[in-house]
Design a protein around this nucleic acid. Structure first.
Lengths: 356, 356
DNA sequence: CTTCATTTGTAAACCGATTTATTTCTGTTT
DNA sequence: AAACAGAAATAAATCGGTTTACAAATGAAG
């Protein structure tokens, strides 16, 4: 029986050509040993002649487990998730899986839909970087469904799923300590998307560290939901009435907002206000000034997450582990020690007047 | 006959529950009208009770065309392809397709493998952003296979595939004109990955424009294959012996190399050397100085490409079209007019000595 | 009350693979 | 040469759907 799928040979074509049954072809291709060498030859020849390749989806259908791993991330436009996904792709391929990548676009409703889609696709497992946290719509649905999954990035420990994330708390506390030691007595924490677990962790860890250490510091917090411009506006309003000695941006694009607003207002950084950013980017070495930042261990997050997922796919695990990957810290120019710094205002003026 | 796939109801379960045949269930679900309302009710009820959802892969298997569109891009770590992919995802979903995203990691061999994988997956069509050009390994294989595809970004017109790309030539010529008009008589073109068609177009268009206009300008070209650090080194060596009046970086990360090398050497931009970048990024407004750049119409590229692909999937087209999407231009601070600018060196010194 | 034309419903084939249960082919051993 | 064990090959069932071809039910016309 020869089918009608234009241009593409099926296993039956090969069987015909080789004068054997489809079952034999399947065996040869999967390397089952119980085939006479002469027949192996014939099959291989037919495969070559017909340019035959297994249809992995048809194959998976019968095997009842698909060699596809779902990846759901909030967005693809920042370096963080791009890098993460890229690394996951490499790992997945090495393990014989393909990736089904989808972005929730920072929407929990969409996240839920995507979880369902992954379920429909019968993926072997899913790596979810939730919009919100391990209690969000997506993760909740996964739990109900009983999906094999690992949660990354905007999560904390959880008793259903393995979680892998940067050690936000530690990194944030470290920044708090540094700022306190550098004599900063008034710091603004700047964030977006209050809903993200990572952000909340960064905020609370900062506060707790200050409290614990007994340092004398006023900590302001500025958050804005929705588009980045809202945050820009809020930050601008804030600066109209307050001048902290340092700003700690809790996410990458926030750092950009800070820098560009400083520029617009001709605020000198770090002389007037210091800046530290959570989440490093390549461009931070080229800004004015170069930004001191926390760098997240993206590679490690990807690797640990994938490792756990594979483990769970292959052997059902009894309890969930929570892995915190340590961040590192790049010291550049944007953060000064108020106690030791001797500021020479004359040399620090920028030449351009702020545009507009 | 009730199957064994744990936890998941199949169409047969639903048929049983509703007391009809699987064929009827299929019809109801696909909205075929020839089903008695009473049966529609029963099926819908059973679907809800069993939480049934069609397995799209099994469904596609029989339909012989899969509702999956392949996307092959060189990398996911830069804004450009992240944005492009994101947009494509939205478009694909609106049209009832899922995306299979894969990165060639700037390797043509990998690109070829991915084309083959997409073919194995029997995708309805593929959008390829080639590592090299419309004549690279991937596109060649696609042609041989007879795959429905659209080529984007690093391509020019082609008689087999539709191509969609930024109008590199025009944008580059425009930069050439601007530089000439601003009195720059010695310009360095800085690029990576000589193999990319876009880059080659940008270079040749620049040269041709200068030649055509008869402007008097020395044009140097610096390229480096492989890692970015090679380019950094090459650029550093170049600066040891030459000082152009302007650098035109032909790609985004090149602009970063230029800026950081300037910083290291305490070269004043734009007073000592001007900079223009191809491919804008959000961070370019926060660098020192803010970078004047060409911005690529990513959204439009995604939309035109998807539109053409859909057209080809639905009705085989006879001949290929080539769409050039116009770029725009953001004027910021890094490019000066040598004829009018009055430079005041005293105010332009940066305060920090270059590190190291 | 037939007869014929429509609707509506379903059994069975099919998509392209894998897996099972069974048959056929070997090669020994009596 | 018959009997039997082990190896190799295959027919058929299966995965979860869709589609086809035909049968059954319904309705209208004669």
């Amino acid at each position: 029986m020869v089918s009608n799928n234009v241009g593409r040979a099926s296993i039956h074509h090969v069987a015909n050509r080789a004068g054997v049954s489809a079952a034999t072809v399947s065996k040869v291709l999967r390397g089952v040993k119980t085939v006479k060498p002469a027949n192996v030859e014939k099959v291989l020849a037919a495969v070559k002649e017909l340019d035959y390749r297994i249809d992995p989806l048809a194959s998976d259908l019968r095997r009842a487990k698909r060699r596809i791993i779902g990846v759901i991330i909030p967005e693809l436009e920042s370096e963080f998730f791009g890098r993460l996904t890229s690394r996951l792709e490499t790992l997945a391929e090495a393990a014989g899986y393909s990736l089904a990548i989808a972005t929730s676009q920072e929407s929990e409703e969409r996240e839920l839909k995507l979880v369902e889609r992954m379920h429909d696709w019968r993926v072997a497992g899913t790596i979810l970087a939730p919009v919100r946290s391990e209690r969000g719509l997506g993760a909740t649905a996964m739990k109900k469904i009983g999906m094999t999954a690992v949660l990354v990035d905007r999560v904390v420990a959880n008793d259903t799923f393995d979680t892998v994330t940067a050690d936000n708390a530690n990194a944030s506390a470290q920044i708090a300590r540094k700022l306190a030691e550098a004599g900063h007595k008034h710091v603004l924490l700047l964030g977006l998307n209050e809903v993200s677990k990572s952000l909340r962790t960064r905020i609370s860890a900062f506060r707790e560290e200050i409290e614990k250490s007994g340092a004398e510091m006023k900590v302001d917090l500025l958050l804005a939901e929705g588009p980045l411009d809202d945050l820009r506006q809020a930050f601008s309003n804030y600066l109209d009435e307050t001048r902290p000695t340092a700003v700690f941006s809790l996410f990458q694009r926030g750092t950009l907002v800070v820098l560009s607003e400083f520029r617009r207002r001709a605020i000198q950084c770090p002389q007037d206000i210091s800046v530290v950013g959570f989440d490093d980017a390549e461009w931070m070495q080229a800004t004015y000034p170069a930004v001191t930042a926390v760098v997240q261990p993206i590679r490690q997050i990807a690797e640990r997450a994938f490792e756990r997922l594979l483990l769970r796919i292959e052997t059902p695990q009894s309890f969930a582990v929570c892995q915190l990957q340590p961040c590192t810290f790049v010291e550049r120019e944007s953060l000064v020690d108020l106690k030791t710094a001797v500021l020479r205002p004359e040399q620090n003026r920028r030449r351009h007047n702020p545009p507009g």
